[in-house]
Structure formats: C-alpha cells, structure tokens
Write a protein that binds this DNA or RNA. Structure first.
Lengths: 329, 329
DNA sequence: TTGTATGCGTTATCAT
DNA sequence: ATGATAACGCATACAA
C-alpha cells in the first residue's frame, strides 16, 4: 500500500495524499476527510525509509554500548530508547564490545544506516580510534556520549563526577572511624581512572595518603571481587574499609567476607559504585555511589533530539553522583 | 558520496560502480580495480535505506521486549543482536512494556520501518492483541518468539519447558527430604502459569498434592519476595522449602530468612528461576532453574535469518531447562 | 486547491 | 563489458 494506491482509490493525485499525511495546509476539507478515511481503512503507514531518502533524515539513532547485559548500560539504553521514541526516533542498538576496532566497525555500520545521530554509552568509547572514526564518518551529525567526553565539534558529553563521588565515599568511611581504606579497581576505562583519582583525593583530604592501598583486578566481575577480597584479607589484615569501583566487585568482596565471618561493617566496611540492583539485593545491602544513570540517559537523549532540531546545546555537562547509604557502612 | 560521484571520478557509469560494489560478474579487472580504489579512497559505503527501497529488504530486524532492564531480556537481546549482525542485519530494539496496547503500537512502528522480521522476547507477547496486530501488519514477514508461541502461519516459537523444570525442582527438594513445598509466583504471564503447572505436577508425582501452597504476589520484584516470605513464615511456619518463579523474588525471600535467622537450606530451602547473576551473587547462592536464555536467543536468531533466506523451519521448538544446584538446597 | 514532474541513492533490465 | 533508463515510495517545487 503506497500513496499512489491511496490516491487512486480516492480519485486524487499522490501529492494530495502526501499533503494530507503530513498535515500540509491548502487542502479542501472534503478531500482531506476522504483521503483520511482511506488511510485508516487500508491501515496505511508511510515507509519511513523512503521518507528518509527524500528528507535526508532517517529518524534513526544509533546507540553504541560495550555490552547491553551490563545493567549499567541497559538502564541507560532503556531511558534513552523511550525518550527518543517520544520524538519519533527509533533506536538502532549495537553491542560493540570493549575492543576499539569493533567500536569503529560499529560506527561504520551506523554510517551506512544513515542514522541521524549517535549515542555512545560508557567511557569505554573515549579513545582515539573511536574519535578518528567519528571524525571521518560522522562529522556532520550529533554524537552524544553518556558518561564520557570527546573533543569533537559535533560531540556532546554528559559526565558524572565519579571522582567527587569516590571522594565522598572516603569522607563517609572516615566519618565512620575508618582509617585504613583500600580501593579495588579494574583500570580498564577512563572512568576507572577518575574513580582512582577520587580515592586519592579523599585520602589526601584526610591526611591518609600514606595508607593508600590500591588492588588492581583483571575485570569488573564478581570473581574480581573474590580476587580482590582474598588479596585484601590475606596481605592486608589491617584494612578496615574497602571501596570497590563497581557494585559487582563489592558483591564478590562481601561474599568472601561473609564466608570468612568478617563482620560488616564493623570489621570491614564496603562501598560500591553504580547503585545497581545488586547493591539493593545484596545481604547485607551495599552502600553505593549513585552515578545517575537514568538522569544521564535522559539528559543525553534530550540533548541529542534538541541538537537534531537545531538548538544550541552545551558540549559538556557534569552531573553529580550521590551516596546511597545502606548496611555495609 | 554516492555511486554517481564515484562513477564520475572513475570515468564510468553508476551501474558499473554498483556492479563492482555488489561483486557482480562481467567487469573488466582493470575497471574493477580502479573503482575499488576510489571506493576505498573516499570511504564510500552504500546507503542501506536506498538499497532497501529497491531491494524490498531493509536488513532491519525489530526486537520487541517488555523491558531491556530485565536481565533476562537483555541477555537474550545481546545474543540475538550479535547473531543477527553476523548476517548483516541491524536490530531495532523497542521497549514495549507490559501493556498489550503499547506492544501493538510498537508493532506499528516496526511496520513503518519496514523491518524484514520481528523477534518477540518473552511470553508476555503471547496475547490476542499482539496476535491481531501481527496478523494485520506482519503477515508476510517471519515473527520469532523467544520463550513463547503464537499460532500464526508466519510465527515461530522457541519455548523453554519451564513446567518440566519446576517439576524437576520439586523432585530435587523432595530428594532433600522436603515435604512442605510452597510456590511464590506472580501470575502475570503465560510462562508463570506453565511454572505453576510444573509445581502441581511435581507435588502430584510425590503424592504431595494435599500440601499445595501457592502464594501470589503483585510483581516479580525483590519486594514481592519480601511479601511472599513474610506471608510464608507468618502464616505457614511448617513450610520447609519454597520455589520462587523468578530469582529476584528468591533473593527477597532469602533476605527475609537471613534477617529472621532462619537457616538455609536446613530450615528452609529456596529455589529460583532464570539462572541470573542475582542467583550467583546471592548469599547464600541460589539453586535455580537455567531456562537457557542464551541458547533460546541464539536459536531464535538463527531461525529468523534462516526463514529470511527462504529455508523451511519448524514452527515450534522446545528447549529443556536444567537445574543449577547451589547453596540454597 | 490540486496535479505534474523531479529527485533522493540504489539496483535491475535492457540495450549496445 | 558497460551504459542508459526505469523503478522503489515519498516529498516538494512549480504549474495550473
């Protein structure tokens, strides 16, 4: 069913049908009604792709993330997709993994699909290869990055001040009397370095820099939590608090502590990051940094659609994370 | 950059360029090389939408799910998106929520986008409104349902035998000496009724039908687990095991039991469903039904692409769930 | 107020 | 082996 079919049945030309569909003025009410009736009757919906061809706008947005199974990413994707849909955009979601080469490949796919804009989810996309690919293939379209920033004229970044957030965590632990505070982290993303700096800031603020204890782990999984916890209790029994760069790792730590019958939070306090469901459901429940994924996603989506409708928008926005205190502190 | 631009630079016609791009035979090697060099040089990629217009195939697949934040759904979406991409398809992911009307609306959007096929994730889509909408708007395109089935000539369903799975759970609990086995469930989806029947099957098998104890809860959240657990320990102190229709509810139950100092699994055994990360990270870790989300997704995606390339495929496939025994039994 | 003609980027058919 | 042309479904400038 095309506008030509409808036109024929209505006894008008295709352009008239097109005008009715797009609510253009200058159509006799009677004609409009007649056409609209046919439109309903035949369940007609315009072909968005054909529209895109002439309008030079597909109403398609590419959403790139490392892995949608990461609750962090899926939460963001959820709000972004919903918001974009309100404005008539459809979301092309691609799992690009953590390899910059695969990210570049995904950007190529999105170029080919002629998306109107791109949303990058996660600071993992903050790398040279992605930047180069965007510069070459997406220089004329808005690129919004959730939780990161790229220095491109058409790029916009919504950042969460995780550095400050981790500093807050140190404050909290300090106020609880903790003085030997460790930090478990996988240094795989720019964001993890931000957190590391926040940890150092916090220690410095309280004159604890000498006590710095960073435990690097291979991933951000619960197993990495196990590894980190074992190293902690094995080599550094004096530690009385630990900040984990992700809730999942905190979960692993807690499990080991539970198994070893180390009392939480009296003997060992634990802080996580992400305010994920994991933190809520853990026993004991985890004090965690809320890095505002929903707000970030909402704002990122809003900036994208605003840019798409020609508005001027700031290229860098900073959101502040807040601590959610639960049972582990 | 279009094929005309490339053609001009190469001193050939657009058709020749098109032939080179699509590896059609009957092109002089020299011409082919010259064109290919230009293609690389200008970073040319064909416009998939324009292609779709003439090919009558967009290489777009619509993936419909209630909520991508549900780990169950995101895991499936992940494998599906990856598999589809291998075959050159792009995934349009829509969160349709749990309202049939919104699901129908989403199907309309996908029709408008001229997707080549649809993947429905979750038995929530197994309802009359969705069926009607598919019949009206998608009768000529393959529709694959992960974890459910629709009786449409163009529909394919990958089902997981959760009924049998829950029956297995009862077997396990019985073998552990449990005789008062309760079942906590939110009866919101067809799948939940399957599980209920499995519970009844299991009881019947062991002559325990008299002991049937079903606790209905309002949602499938951890809070529903709280509610179920409180009702359980409050009104039915004799119960020695409970099967929860979702891991998240099992998590809630475990938390309450922990707080009340009820020993798991000796005083009360717990079984969940989904084999989610939640079950792994819980303390104690949850014995759960693995309902094979990755396998289901992989198979669903494969069937979709096979149908799209004209192959005949079975309309109904059943996968079997397996029990993952952990600390709660 | 409405119709005709054209073009968007591509592939396919028919010539040559 | 290659080019001209039509067609896909739609929107729009221009004509009437």
């Amino acid at each position: 069913m095309t506008i030509y079919d409808i036109a024929e049945k209505a006894g008008v030309s295709a352009s008239t049908v097109s005008r009715v569909i797009n609510n253009k003025p200058g159509i006799k009410a009677a004609t409009r009604d007649k056409v609209q009736k046919l439109l309903k009757e035949y369940n007609y919906t315009p072909d968005e792709n054909a529209r895109g061809l002439v309008n030079k706008a597909t109403k398609l947005i590419g959403i790139l993330m490392a892995d949608i199974r990461n609750s962090h990413h899926s939460e963001l994707a959820y709000v972004v997709e919903k918001k974009l849909r309100e404005y008539g955009y459809c979301s092309l979601i691609l799992n690009a993994g953590y390899e910059p080469k695969m990210m570049a490949e995904s950007i190529r796919i999105l170029e080919q699909r002629k998306v109107d804009g791109i949303m990058l989810v996660g600071s993992a996309f903050q790398n040279d290869i992605v930047e180069k690919e965007l510069r070459e293939r997406m220089s004329d379209k808005p690129v919004v990055m959730a939780n990161g920033y790229l220095d491109l004229p058409n790029a916009y970044g919504i950042l969460v001040d995780e550095r400050d957030g981790i500093r807050q965590s140190v404050d909290l632990l300090y106020s609880k009397g903790k003085r030997k505070i460790a930090f478990i982290v996988n240094l795989g993303t720019p964001s993890s370095y931000e957190k590391l700096h926040g940890y150092e800031d916090g220690l410095a603020k309280h004159g604890l820099s000498e006590e710095k204890m960073i435990i690097e782990v291979p991933e951000t999984t619960i197993e990495s939590g196990f590894i980190g916890a074992r190293e902690l209790v094995g080599k550094h029994p004096e530690v009385d608090a630990v900040i984990c760069a992700e809730d999942l790792m905190a979960l692993g730590v807690i499990r080991i502590l539970n198994e070893l019958n180390i009392k939480i939070p009296t003997q060992m306090a634990v802080v996580g990051v992400n305010n994920s469901v994991y933190g809520e459901v853990s026993f004991p429940s985890i004090t965690t940094l809320d890095n505002k994924m929903s707000e970030t996603g909402l704002m990122a989506a809003q900036i994208l659609v605003d840019c798409l409708s020609g508005e001027e928008k700031p290229h860098k926005i900073m959101l502040f994370s807040t601590l959610v205190e639960r049972e582990t502190t």
